[in-house]
Amino acid sequence: MIALQLLHESVSLATTQAPAETVDAGTAKLGGGGEQVLFWVMSIIMVPAALGLLFARKAVHAALGMAVVMIGLGIIYLAEQAPFLGVVQIFVYAGAVMMLFLFLLMLVGVDSSDSLVETIKGQRWMALVFGGGLAILLISVLGDVTYTAPKGLKDVDTSGNMTAMANLIFGKYVWAFEVTSALLITAVLGAMILAHRERLVPKPTQRDLSIKRIREGPVKAPLPAPGVFARSNAVDIPALLPDGSPSPLSLSRVLIARGQMRAVGTVREDVKVIEAEITPGDRPKADRNPDAASENAEGAS
């Protein structure tokens, strides 16, 4: 393009006219090869993660991609002589913000997934053309800009990056800082008001709940906890009714769905072993059967 040619000429002109101290005018070189490696590694990790945010079907996958990008950015800040910012990035973004997102995903529905059918005509093309166009435009412009030699922050960070930043925040930009704090308070208040749910009916008390239970439900007694009246109090062992059969009410639905419920008979061997260990006298017959144990007791006497 003529435009780019013109810019190249201006760059070369600047090159010839630039003062001698400018090293590699046109490029902004700083740092060593290690940073270069870091750049490439982080890029290769972060860009696919961002694309995952763009293309993932399940929302939680997208959130994961986002989290990767956030952490990556934190690392980059640390490498770019911005330690304070890097740490704050991890705390705020990778921590608080992503946590907020995930909470909301949980509230909205983790398995809510977008259908792939695009309802607005031409939206995908627009996104491709203009998103891609934006990237191409900006990259080409940035590439043609003449940069002064980067100074780095060594001179500024004489007492440390934090001090330098604090000098600015509480010095030159204290007013912005105070206003931002007001903003944060307002944001919190806003969130509270938005999330507040006004009760339409008074909260049912325990009495109301129990009255409701007696009236409606078939079960009048509290449900048995799992493992009651069995020789174990594990969740995956059903409780035993007085006649020795497992109570269906004590079964965990989730564990059934997972197929992880154990039968009562499976714990008998364990019970025998434990009993043998704890009984002081000779009780030769470890009771396989609780009925057998009671018969033994009657037979012995």
Binding site: L53, L54, V108
Partner: peptide, 29 residues
């Protein structure tokens, strides 16, 4: 290390973010 590369990365992430806003339907995404 040419610091411009970081700017390229920034531009790329920005474009991907813009495309996400355009293409995805889930409000949270």
């Amino acid at each position: 290390m040419n610091l411009v590369h970081w700017l390229y990365l920034s531009v790329l992430l920005f474009s991907i973010g813009a495309a996400t806003v355009l293409v995805r339907r889930n409000a949270i995404i």
